[in-house]
Amino acid sequence: MDTTPTDSLAPPAPAGKTVTRAGDRVFLGLSRGSGILLLVIMAAIAVFLTVRTISAVSQDHGNFLTTFEWNADNTPPVFGIAVLAYGTVVSSVIAMVIALPVSIGIALFISHYAPRRVASPLAYVVDLLAAVPSIVYGLWGALYLVPHMQGLTAWLDQYLGWTVVFKQSAPGTAARSLFTVGILLAIMIIPIITNVSREVFRQVPRAHEEAALALGATRWEVVRMSVLPFARSGIVSASMLGLGRALGETMAVATVLSSSPVLTAHILDPAGGTFAQNIASHFGEATDFGRDALIASGLVLFVITLLVNGAARMIIARRKEYSGAAA
């Protein structure tokens, strides 16, 4: 590694001198350089994606923001992100609506409800599940979850079809819809949100909980009055992290969703698409220009996840300042 040459450069200098030693300077340079390199990479990502995006969008014969279809390889190219943006948001929202309460439940279960003998192996298992590669979720989603969603989809269509949202245009089609994608994404991000929330729940000062217990609160009242208020911003940032993951998920969506350039409120219909899925499915047969167009959609995704993650980090940072969580 890079550290070995520094050994010969600077033998331990005699003490009592204020001059900075060569070894120190090299080491500081290396470590500061690495930090700067990270910043450069982030900047480069933004710059290179933007450069390709400008060259692609300037030749778009549709409207990049409002066109539905993605025909970047046609002449003239017509493509837009309307369907992709809609599909990304809808599937992520479905995932969050399902995953957030369930994850908080599991995190509470591990931190406050489960017997200790169960809790720590369980935390371990949740940790492991967060490491399962997304393509495995995708394979399972496409070959196992989709057929098993059939019953639920039909049931939702039958009893909740009047809400328009749960209306199926063609009952009985395979459940390769944004709804199924949302559920699969929820299953994928539950371990992530659970892990972060569990950490936050563990930091709740014992004194708060004991004070509530001493006043005769039931366990739920302890959770509601001392644990959840303390952990609120932690939960927000955990869910933002999960949301970021759901927004950018590629393979699980690409395998499950049967995409089409249709923007519909019927989330049970096999239609729509997401940014990442669109890139993965169109990349194979894309021309040089088509690749630039895909990069343009990638830039939009990049900016969205940047905003979501940045917001999450700001919330965490603000919390650290005045909560005294370290104490």
């Binding site: 480069a44 994606l49 927004l247 950018g248 990442a276 990049f302 980090r313």
Partner: peptide, 18 residues
């Protein structure tokens, strides 16, 4: 922190472009 959240496909696109 922000980099942790980069979707893998965006990292792929960056290397593709660059």
């Amino acid at each position: 922190d922000v980099m942790t959240g980069i979707p893998s496909i965006v990292a792929g696109l960056f290397i593709l472009a660059f």
